[in-house]
Amino acid sequence: MGEISIKINIADRVYPLRVETAEEEIIRHAAKLVNERIKELQENYAVRDKQDLLSMCVLQYATGMIKAERSAQQHEEGVEEKVHELDSLLTDFFKK
Rank of each mutant, 00 (worst) to 15 (best):
G2Y: 10
Y45I: 01
E20Y: 14
L89A: 13
I38W: 00
E69C: 07
E3N: 13
P16F: 12
V83D: 08
R18P: 05
K96R: 09
G64E: 12
L17A: 12
R70N: 14
R28I: 01
L41W: 05
A62R: 08
A62W: 02
N35C: 04
E43V: 09
G64R: 06
E20P: 05
G2S: 13
L86M: 12
D49Q: 01
S88Y: 13
H84T: 15
S55H: 05
S55K: 03
I27D: 04
I26L: 12
L53N: 03
V47H: 00
S88M: 10
L33N: 08
L90V: 14
I4Y: 05
A11E: 09
V79I: 15
I10S: 02
V83I: 14
N44L: 04
E69K: 13
E69Y: 11
E36C: 00
G2C: 01
R48L: 09
V34E: 01
V79M: 10
A11R: 00
E40Y: 15
E23F: 05
E77I: 03
D87I: 04
D87C: 07
L17D: 01
I10D: 00
H29C: 11
E69P: 01
I10N: 06
M65D: 14
L86P: 02
I10T: 08
T21N: 07
E43H: 04
A31W: 01
V19G: 12
E3G: 08
L41N: 10
K67A: 06
S88T: 09
I10V: 13
D87V: 04
K32Y: 15
C57M: 12
G2K: 06
V14D: 15
A22Q: 10
I4E: 01
